[in-house]
């Protein structure tokens, strides 16, 4: 009886971790997995492959959950999404096989380190997010015509219909291949890379980018998940708990996102994420005994580096905002 109670509590504690991850993930726009993997591996002591496995499954759940809401508004572009999925799914196969290779060759510390680097790297575009709603006007190129990359949606906030032309489809595909690889390797949606591919490479409006990326994340994650399944990376107890938790968290995160008027609150979460990123890198080296460090010192170093990192981003952002205002 006592044992049953302890296990129920353990389950609930993982669900709670999932809620937290889903909440922060949807508030910062980075997705639940980005928070979930470090949370599970650092604070719950879950082996990294089980953490990425649970995360990939949870990523499908949140993507499907929020995409069902987004597609109703008809902003997500299905043609662009499906076209780019060719590259992300191939990338996901490569990425998840890479994880299997690293796991079999006792190189899992590399997964921690790459995860940390990707996490810190994706904070940079997350900071810039939501500042320029519409892309600069460019002339359609040959891919616009062949791949039918033009579209139109109604922007409720700008109160007008927005016409857009996607360009450089091939460049989008190349970036999406890497987005898929990262997704399969680390068990995350890699929304930041997907947004980069559509926003920067294909010159699509932010709304189209985020909604289409959300719709694509599920398909990419499904590809990686089946390979994870047969490799035994999905521990059912953990995956069940996180899937439930992340769905709940993402739901409340999306609600909160609409209500929060003070955008500076995001900085607190970005700071937490940068701490997790640095901690993952250090943890990778410590786990494989490349060097030894007492947890307390480990945390202190992570906090210091994270604070410096986020301060630099904050100041940089402030300066850019000022120069925009000056214009």
């Amino acid at each position: 009886m006592y044992e049953l109670l302890a296990i129920i509590l353990k389950f609930i504690s993982i669900v709670f971790g999932g809620i937290l991850a889903g909440f922060i993930g949807s508030l910062t726009g980075l997705g639940g997995g980005t928070v979930l993997v470090p949370l599970l591996s650092i604070f719950y002591g879950v082996p990294i492959v089980f953490a990425t496995g649970a995360s990939l499954i949870s990523t499908i759940a949140t993507s499907a959950g929020s995409a069902s809401a987004y597609t109703k508004e008809k902003i997500a572009n299905i043609k662009i999404g499906v076209g780019l999925e060719v590259a992300t799914t191939i990338g996901a196969v490569v990425g998840s096989l890479l994880t299997v290779y690293l796991d079999h060759h006792a190189l899992t510390w590399l997964i921690y380190v790459i995860f940390g680097i990707v996490l810190l790297g994706s904070l940079v575009p997350a900071v810039k997010r939501g500042q320029s709603e519409l892309p600069p006007h460019t002339r359609p190129d040959w891919t616009t015509r062949i791949f039918e990359l033009s579209g139109k949606y109604h922007d409720a906030r700008l109160k007008k219909d927005v016409d857009y032309n996607g360009i450089r489809w091939w460049l989008g595909e190349i970036i999406m291949f890497f987005a898929g690889t990262v997704s399969g390797l680390l068990g995350i949606g890699s929304g930041a890379l997907k947004v980069l591919g559509m926003d920067w490479a294909m010159n699509l409006p932010m709304k189209v980018t985020t909604t289409t990326s959300n719709f694509m994340i599920g398909i990419t994650a499904a590809t990686g998940s089946s390979i994870y399944w047969y490799s035994g990376y999905i521990q059912i107890f953990i995956a069940a708990a996180t899937a439930i938790g992340v769905v709940i968290g993402a739901y409340f995160g999306a609600k909160a996102l609409v209500k929060i008027t003070n955008k500076d609150i995001r900085w607190i979460f970005l700071a937490i994420l940068s701490f997790l990123g640095v901690e993952m890198i250090i943890r990778g080296f410590v786990t494989d005994k490349i060097f030894f460090m007492v947890p307390l010192i480990q945390f202190s170093i992570s906090i210091v580096i994270a604070v410096v990192f986020i301060a630099v981003l904050y100041l940089h952002n402030l300066r850019r905002l000022r120069s925009v205002e000056a214009l």
Binding site: A64, I219, A222, I236, A243
Partner: peptide, 22 residues
Amino acid sequence: AFYVAFGLWVLIFTPITVVVIA
């Protein structure tokens, strides 16, 4: 365990139906 496995596989197949519909 099989109910959890079934649920996880339904989740994996969910985005695939989107591609089929498209």
